[in-house]
Design a protein around this nucleic acid. Structure first.
Length: 319
RNA sequence: GCCGAGGUAGCUCAGUCGGUAGAGCGGGGGCCUGAAAAGCCCUGUGUCAGCAGUUCAAUUCUGUUCCUCGGCA
């Protein structure tokens, strides 16, 4: 069942591209407001890559209560909806301790689901997806796209015929539920957000981010990123597992397996991180509810947060 | 110094049997409803090394200069 509260929980959200300085700003917010930090990052939730995926360090985590960091094994799948359930529990727990829930991360879709809700499509039978994916491999995207055009023309029109992931998703939903994917999207009454609050976004340009990304990768290497990848591989040799899709994970593994030189691995890691940051910026730029801050505007952000939290408490926050 | 191979988009290169050029990568822009650190789309004018010659027309042929890389000294 969807997690939906009749009155949405008040929360503060802090988002931004990777390496934009979310972790330290979140800590400052938590200290200023008496807050708990709740992870809204799809990779930092895994236990095997704390360094490579840039979880807050143990020292940082000791400075305020932290939730949902490093709680899943690499093989566990998580989805936006499942994350919402976990976040819900964390928020309830924080509120019981009179802590301000501060959601922090770079996964735009998680914030989307949290603040706008997500349609309650039932879980899909893994065998159904496996069948569709096998057909996708065998028949190519065009064949399945044609089927989608037949059963859900409006959604088909909204995606590209090469978008294998979304074609499979839309078909599996149709086959399992009997309703087109787009039908579900229109059930706005079923899509209730269970949180409300401001979405602060750190607006960091790629030019500003790039040297930080390089420096961070260097410091991760010094702190033992290679060892982390090696140990993660020993624990989870299936590199198809969800946690392995974190940027830097397979790049380092490729080096450990002798497929690329260390320099090449680090260059790829950096390049992929930069491309990811660009996608994140594009996503957040388009959020109409986002409130943007420059990386150095910590004081402004804190003042805003104090004021917004006050309004949320009084029930006069305008999302 | 001689011989050979090259100098074309930020990079690696293709190509034009003479009619001013195009791929990959990078870069830029964008999409996103339960995989989202995922998946997907759009986007290529550059003295075709310089100069001169032949030609209606040269990046393409010829000569020459410069530079790079091999080989021989």
């Amino acid at each position: 069942m969807p997690v939906a509260a009749s009155t949405p929980f008040p929360v503060l959200c802090l988002a931004g591209a990777t390496a934009s300085g979310k972790t330290s700003l979140a800590l400052a917010m938590a200290k200023a407001l008496g807050g708990a930090i709740i992870n809204a990052d799809s990779r930092q939730i895994y236990a095997d890559f704390p360094l490579i995926c840039a979880q807050p360090t143990p020292e940082e985590q000791a400075q305020a209560p932290h939730y949902l960091y490093g709680i899943l094994p690499s093989t566990a799948k998580i989805s936006a909806g499942e994350w919402c359930h976990l976040a819900h529990d964390a928020i309830v727990s924080a509120r019981k301790q009179h802590l301000v829930p501060i959601l922090v991360g770079g996964t735009g879709m998680y914030f989307q689901a949290l603040l706008h809700g997500i349609v309650p499509i039932p879980p899909i039978d893994p065998a159904l997806r496996a069948t569709l994916e096998a057909r996708m491999d065998a028949e190519g995207p065009l064949a399945l796209y044609g089927e989608l055009e037949a059963c859900d023309p409006s959604y088909a029109k909204s995606i590209h015929q090469n978008d294998r992931q979304r074609i499979v998703r839309a078909l599996e939903v149709f086959h399992q539920t009997g309703h087109p994917f787009s039908w579900w999207h229109h059930q706005k009454s079923l899509q209730q957000p269970f949180c409300q609050g401001p979405l602060y976004v750190i607006a960091a340009s790629l030019d500003w981010l790039e040297p930080r990304i390089r420096a961070r990768i260097d410091s991760m290497m010094e702190s033992g990123a290679l060892k982390e990848a090696k140990e993660a591989f020993a624990r989870c040799p299936n590199t198809e597992a969800p946690a392995w899709s974190g940027i830097g994970c397979w790049e380092l593994l490729a080096y450990l397996r002798g497929r690329v030189s260390l320099d090449e691995a680090l260059a790829l890691w950096c390049k992929h991180t930069r491309a990811y940051a660009k996608r994140q910026n594009t996503w957040f730029r388009g959020r109409k509810e986002a409130i943007f801050f420059q990386p150095k505007q910590e004081a402004d952000l804190l003042a805003h947060a104090v004021q917004d939290w006050d309004r949320l408490q009084k029930g006069v926050f305008q999302g």
